[in-house]
Amino acid sequence: MSQTAEHEASNETSEHVREIGHDEFDPIGTLTLIGIYFLILVFLWFFMYFVEFLGNDPTVVSGTLVFLATGARSA
């Protein structure tokens, strides 16, 4: 792990400034991005289910559970 991450650009693109091997690469940027994505997904899911969907009354319920459903909705 002590190897330097910097290598002389040797191949294809001119912007290629260093060579990073498998062991030196920690995709922390990816983790950041995908963490943000995760939070967005969780927020939007709750919003869609509990605000958009359950707020879109009436909903199809089974006859016997109607009381429970209304109770839960008004609570």
């Binding site: 693109t13 912007e15 290629h16 400034v17 260093r18 060579e19 990073i20 690469f25 995709p27 922390i28 940027g29 990816t30 950041t32 991005l33 995908i34």
Partner: peptide, 20 residues
């Protein structure tokens, strides 16, 4: 994850730094 990480690998080889 895999695709973004591959892009990030490219970006860092091109001199990119930082979290974002």
């Amino acid at each position: 994850f895999t695709v973004v990480a591959s892009m990030e690998h490219g970006a860092r080889q091109r001199g990119g730094t930082g979290y974002l």
